[in-house]
Nucleic acid binder design. Structure first.
Lengths: 234, 234
DNA sequence: GGCCGTGTTTGCTCAAGCACAAACAATAAA
DNA sequence: TTTATTGTTTGTGCTTGAGCAAACACGGCC
């Protein structure tokens, strides 16, 4: 399968292009070029001019911000078929407000912002897809913000595990295993805490038999109990 | 001046309609109805079906979320000429993801989501305005999230004061006064902390001579020093 | 003026979770 | 196999800031 065909079939699976015509899909696919990034590499850095928007093909990346003092904050993980880095298409010469770093060797369709912007002007339907994506993202960020302010660390760590299990979890006989290698440091960034606290918390839960851990591995043996923790019910 | 004319002249000052044609403005204004809400009343509640979007005329409101346990989290303050509650125009039957509560007697233009949605389909330019608003809001939320995770309470309180001073501050001889009555509780919700901590912090700063406080009043006598605090430089 | 309600301050206590250090385990490289 | 590297656990001390309760101050109202 050549790139063109691969792009088209991928785009059809992207929420933003839901309900787009064949012509729309083809038009977008024609703009795309293949971009591969190896583990720990960056699709783009915070502050770079947003010259492309991306659709993840394979692999996984994290969207993160870097504070002035160098601390990293993880905003979300990017999975296959997700669109990211769309600021440039909306506003010319805008900088990316965050950086996208590959968690493993990854590839994505890169679409130049300028021609995509033109396409948006011609096909209003595409804009609605984008706006829906944006509103859902706004809601996610609002929820994350509320959680970070009102909830305790324990709840937030539980939430992170559940989110990861939902995105990349795999049913095994012991429960649900999170397939990707996330270090305690990664988990800490996602939950907005330190690796020490994550380590301690996971150890405690393992002693209680709720989860099973290993190097860069977590399995939820009692997902329901973790859900109760996330709700702050105990 | 009748409502129609008032609406039109207001809409021209709204960022979303920047660059919109006269016809566009008139079309939108025709959809609007006047909505007034008295202090502490709600334009809408979290979870309500998003049947209208609003443009603030007079007064001020806060956009906030309520956690399961009843805790309030303040997301942002809404000032005159700002558009809010636009989810409904993008996605049919969507619920508002937050509530909008008036901080003082306020009025706004209410535009029914359905016909506005139709308008968006016909005039792509409007969509870009909305998308720009959304991206800026996303960035704001990302920043707020990062701040809540990486910064100390002191810095966050300083930021809140600066933001308010920027939005509603008035130059007086002693410095910059925040005109609106914000209680310690309000400030705490904005900074994501408790009213006790806010009170203590402000007292300390007052002793240092950086600010002057009163009942529901704050004046920044040394704005520059507060900026340094916000940056975490001391 | 005196009273009341609402907002504010402050002292005290306590738990959460951060920071550092050091030991330990698993994997990769030589 | 040995060694290096990277990730994980755990102990200790300590700071931050939340929670509660009680006193206080300001403004409006009778």
């Amino acid at each position: 399968m050549d790139d063109q065909a691969l792009f088209e079939s991928t785009l059809r699976r992207v929420a933003v292009f839901d309900g787009s015509s064949d012509a729309d899909i083809k038009a977008v696919a024609r703009l795309g070029i293949l971009r591969t990034v190896e583990e720990d590499g960056f699709f783009f850095m915070q502050g770079d001019p947003a010259e492309y928007l991306y659709i993840m093909l394979n692999g996984r990346a994290k969207l993160c911000q870097i504070a002035l003092d160098g601390q990293q904050v993880n905003l979300r993980t990017l999975n296959p078929n997700e669109l990211f880095g769309a600021v440039g298409a909306v506003e010319k010469n805008a900088p990316y407000p965050a950086c996208a770093q590959a968690l493993q060797d990854s590839s994505a369709i890169a679409i130049p912002s300028d021609p995509f912007h033109t396409l948006l002007e011609q096909r209003p339907h595409l804009s609605f897809g984008l706006m829906k994506l944006m509103t859902s993202y706004i809601q996610e960020m609002q929820d994350r913000y509320r959680e970070s302010v009102t909830e305790k660390v324990e709840q937030r760590i539980a939430r992170v595990l559940l989110r990861l299990a939902g995105q990349t979890g795999k049913r095994v006989e012991q429960g649900v295993r999170i397939e990707l290698p996330f270090s305690r440091q990664d988990l800490a960034e996602m939950a907005g805490t330190t690796l020490y606290t994550v380590s301690r918390t996971l150890s405690a839960w393992e002693k209680q038999g709720l989860i099973a851990t290993g190097r860069e591995r977590v399995t939820l043996t009692h997902p329901h109990a973790v859900m109760r923790l996330a709700e702050g019910l105990e």
